[in-house]
């Protein structure tokens, strides 16, 4: 097929370029400018070169926050993606229950992030929260405000509750777009359910799953409100993820230079991981 070459069509991209420039590129430029300077307020800046980058790269605090962030991100991806696919596979494709299931699945996504954090905070409190009370009644010594393991358990459970629905809805959209003819052909060939999943459903869901993985990867790397409201980064620093640490440096300590350097390193990590995931998942798509 011959591709139409119309270079003037590129002018239609200009509004998007202007929009992205104002909401992303200009703030990013300011961050880059801050990352090589020191400020004490009054809009006065002093050149510090690349010292902030060196400080952040050698900082144990940054390494620990990054380690916690990677553990959090890959744990929730390992749970939410398979769980989302499994739930989408069990949902009805036709009939009145479709709307009911879709609305139920969409509900967690409609709740504001700070409310989710507050809800789970109350829900998991050891004395008055339902989950905390039940776990303690069962003999577990559960207290997410005191024990790091319990805080992590609650944090991951909260994220899974809040965001698995997104994976479900995307996977479901991929599943309902598969024509019946594929299933009929599989039945004629005597394919078992796992073979249908492996060779029909999974390949057909590949694009939406790529979007789901990328969205959850980027969102989980940038997550702030829910863990901040739930645990405040504690107990100690046990649930201080990168974003919480960044806000502590930038707004708590008003160290704008180190915070800007950390933001850029953070940005590069998210960029690289997203690109790697996208490239690996879309590999062979054209074949």
């Amino acid at each position: 097929m011959n591709k139409t070459v119309n270079q003037k069509a590129w002018f239609f991209v200009i509004p998007v370029v202007v929009l992205v420039a104002f909401n992303a590129v200009i703030p990013l430029m300011t961050v880059v400018n801050y990352s090589v300077q020191e400020t004490f307020g009054n809009n006065e800046f002093f050149w510090s070169g690349l010292d902030w980058f060196k400080q952040i790269l050698h900082s144990d605090r940054f390494h620990q926050a990054l380690r916690r962030q990677l553990i959090f991100t890959f744990t929730i991806l390992a749970i939410e993606i398979p769980l989302g696919i499994a739930i989408a596979l069990t949902m009805p494709r036709k009939g009145p229950w479709v709307s009911v299931c879709l609305v139920l699945m969409a509900l967690p996504l409609l709740i504001p992030w700070n409310v989710v954090g507050a809800m789970w905070n109350i829900f998991a409190l050891p004395k008055i929260g339902f989950m905390g009370h039940v776990l303690n009644s069962m003999g577990f010594d559960f207290n997410f405000t005191r024990q790091p393991g319990d805080a992590w358990f609650t944090l991951i459970l909260m994220d899974v509750w809040h965001w698995t629905s997104l994976v479900v809805l995307l996977a479901y959209a991929g599943l309902v777009s598969i024509p019946d003819a594929y299933y009929q052909a599989a039945r004629i060939d005597g394919a078992k359910p796992f073979a249908i999943f492996r060779y029909i459903q999974l390949p057909k869901m590949k694009r939406v799953l790529t979007i789901a993985v990328l969205l959850r990867l980027m969102d989980s790397f940038m997550i702030y409100t829910e863990p901040f409201v739930l645990t405040g980064g504690g107990p100690g620093n046990s649930t201080t993820l990168l974003s919480i640490d960044l806000v502590k440096i930038a707004l708590g300590q008003f160290d704008l230079g180190p915070a800007a350097a950390m933001s850029l390193i953070y940005f590069l990590i998210v960029l690289l991981l997203s690109w790697l995931f996208y490239t690996l998942m879309m590999r062979g798509e054209e074949e």
């Binding site: 400018n33 809009n43 800046f45």
Partner: peptide, 8 residues
């Protein structure tokens, strides 16, 4: 303005 420097 925006804390620009020549290197950045």
């Amino acid at each position: 303005w925006m804390a620009w420097t020549w290197p950045t």
